[in-house]
């Protein structure tokens, strides 16, 4: 019985990780060698080939971002750092490089200040990736159940009291981490974040080329897409200003 269960779990774990691993690994080292030799175009082609083979990792996106940065394509650099951050939130290298890439971009947008508790919660999501949260939540849940069983079956009253309190507290943690895992996944798979790709992109008052220009944003700026209509997207800047831009001028992070 236990063996069967173990096999099922093992095969499921395998199915989640990539199947063909040898090809990306050799491409990976070749791409890194090209990067080291400052042949950025070749490095980029290799990295993108890995990406197109259907696997991903924060490191891959980070390296692609670096390559684009070296080739002075700031919008793409920002895009890939954002992608990398989604897989590895709070990674110091990615955060640092993203900041530098942002400095190279023209637009400086002051984000609307948010309530600090919301910030804390968001920041606590970002301690780990969604997968890590999921693993932690399962582990914590197991621990909670273990203590609960201990509470149920322990003989000594003192043991049982302690086990009960612990199991309740740990169960609370399990709930929190599960919520974080789901929240973190939701953040990582957000489909409404986009980066401006066009060097200069006018933001219009209406989804129409004749629309009045409200603002002009530049390559590398992060926007939130509120809705789409035909070939137009209604976007919101981090400072809350809104307008319409052509869909062809932005690229979605997810």
């Amino acid at each position: 019985m236990k063996k069967v269960l173990f096999l099922i779990v093992f095969s499921l774990v395998l199915s989640l990780t990539a199947g063909a691993r040898e090809i990306p690994d050799s491409l990976w080292s070749e791409a890194n060698a090209y990067y080291a030799g400052e042949q950025y175009q070749d490095a980029l082609n290799h990295y993108l080939e890995i990406e197109n083979s259907g696997v991903e990792s924060a490191d891959l996106y980070y390296n692609i971002g670096n390559t684009y940065f070296k080739m002075r394509y700031m919008a793409y650099a920002v895009l890939y750092y954002e992608k990398a951050l989604r897989l590895a939130p709070n990674d110091p290298d990615i955060t640092y490089n993203l900041e530098i890439a942002r400095e190279q971009c023209l637009d400086r947008i002051e984000p609307v200040p948010t309530f600090f508790v919301a910030d804390w919660i968001r920041e606590s999501h970002q301690i780990m990736s969604s997968d890590m949260w999921a693993i932690v939540s399962v582990g914590v849940l197991l621990l909670a159940i273990l203590f609960f069983l201990l509470f149920l079956f322990a003989r000594r009253v003192r043991f049982r009291k302690a086990a009960f309190i612990l199991s309740v507290v740990i169960f609370l943690f399990a709930v929190i981490t599960t919520v974080f895992a789901w929240q973190s996944k939701k953040q990582a798979t957000r489909e409404d974040i986009a980066i401006v790709l066009a060097a200069v992109s006018p933001v219009k008052a209406a989804p129409d080329t004749q629309g009045k220009d409200l603002l002009v944003i530049h390559e590398g700026t992060r926007v939130r897409v509120l809705e789409q209509m035909g070939s137009w997207a209604r976007i919101e800047l981090e400072d809350g200003r809104q307008g319409w831009v052509a869909l062809s001028e932005i690229i979605f992070v997810y």
Binding site: T17, V55, E56, S57, A134, W182, K185, A188
Partner: peptide
């Protein structure tokens, strides 16, 4: 060499 994962697949859910 990083730990590759299938694109867009998350453990959660």
């Amino acid at each position: 060499v990083p730990a590759w994962r299938s694109k867009g697949k998350y453990l959660t859910g």
